[in-house]
Amino acid sequence: MSADSVVIRVRGLVNTFGSNTVHKDLDLDISRGEILGVVGGSGTGKSVLLRSIVGLLRPSSGEVEVFGKNLLTLSSQERALTERRFGVLFQQGALFSSLTVLENIALPLIEHARLNRAQATRLARVKLALAGLPANAGHLYPATLSGGMIKRAALARALALDPEILFLDEPTAGLDPIGAAAFDQLLLTLRDAFNLTVFMVTHDLDTLYASCDRVAVISQKKVLIADTLENVAANPDPWIQSYFHGPRGRAAATAATGNAA
C-alpha cells in the first residue's frame, strides 16, 4: 500500500461519550479504489467511526485525514469543497421528506454544480436509473417509498456529484435478498466505472463475501484487523471466529464459493 494511494487515514482516534469510551487509539487506512467492509458487534462504534471520518463528529482526540486533509481544521469553504468529493448513504436514507426523490437527487447538482433545474433533473433521472429505481418513482415523496426504494433513492443522491469516496451505513439492511444481491453488483460496477473508494458499515455477510476487497473488524475499541476476507476469517480471535464461522457465516461462505465455482 503506497502512501499516496491512501485516501482516508485515521490515527489514534479516541471517541468518548460521557464515561463510555467507544474508540481508543483506533488506526485505519483506506486506499483508493477499494471496497472496505467494516464489521463489529452492535454498539462497537461502526457508525461513530463513519461519522468521525465524514466530519459530523469531533473526535475526543486523534487525527482523521481525508485526501490528506484534516476536515476539522479546514476553513468552511475548503471543507465544502472536500465534502463534495464524498457521498454518504445514511442508515435510514435521510432523504429530505419535503422534496420528491428527483428533487432530492437534483439538490446537490443545483447547489454545487450550478446546473439549472431542467439539467439537474435530467441528470437526476439517470442516477435514479443507475440506482435501479423505476422512472415513476422520481415524482414520489420519501414518505410513500418502501424501505428498499428509500435505500436506492438515497444511493442515487449520494452518487449525484460523482463522488470519489462513498460512505455506506448498512446499505443492504432492510433489502430483500434479490435487491441486496443487485446492490452488491451495482456497487462493484460503480467502483469499476468510477474508481470509487467505498467505506461500508455492514452486518450483511453476503455483501462482505460478494463485494468487499478488505474487511476491518472493530472490536475492543480498535480495529482488530483489516485485511482480505480469508485472512480475517482465519484470525483466531473468538468474536471473529463466531462471526465468520457461525451458522450464518458458513452459509454466506458456501454461497460465495458456490457462485465462484
Partner: peptide, 10 residues
C-alpha cells in the same frame, strides 16, 4: 462499463 451501464439503465 460506465457508458454501458448508463445506456443499459436508460
Amino acid at each position: 462499463a460506465l457508458l454501458q451501464m448508463v445506456a443499459q439503465s436508460m
